[in-house]
């Protein structure tokens, strides 16, 4: 299950940010490493909400800055 979440998160990031899968490491920061601007980041969160069918409050979203943050948060929620 946890590996499923990780794979799904990575594929969303690859699709939305148009980056290569090899760049999507656990430590990669959306803004600094993957070229996302503030609007991309908002859309990424929306995409996680839609694909995992959950709601991510803004105060939680603020703490999701890296691939690892997203995977851990979503593993916790689903």
């Amino acid at each position: 299950m946890s590996q499923d979440v990780e794979a799904k998160v990575k594929s969303i990031i690859v699709d939305k940010l148009g980056v290569d899968e090899s760049e999507v490491t656990h430590e990669a920061n959306f803004t600094n490493d993957l070229g996302a601007d503030s609007l991309d980041t908002v859309e990424l969160i929306m995409e996680f909400e839609k694909d995992f069918d959950i709601s991510i409050p803004d105060e939680d979203a603020e703490n999701i800055a890296t691939v690892g943050n997203a995977v851990e948060y979503l593993q916790d929620k689903v």
Binding site: S38, L39, V42, E43, M46, E49, K50, S55
Partner: peptide
């Protein structure tokens, strides 16, 4: 379908 949270940040731009 989804309400305000369904609106993309790229909608206006």
């Amino acid at each position: 379908e989804h309400g305000p949270r369904g609106v993309s940040p790229f909608f206006i731009p």
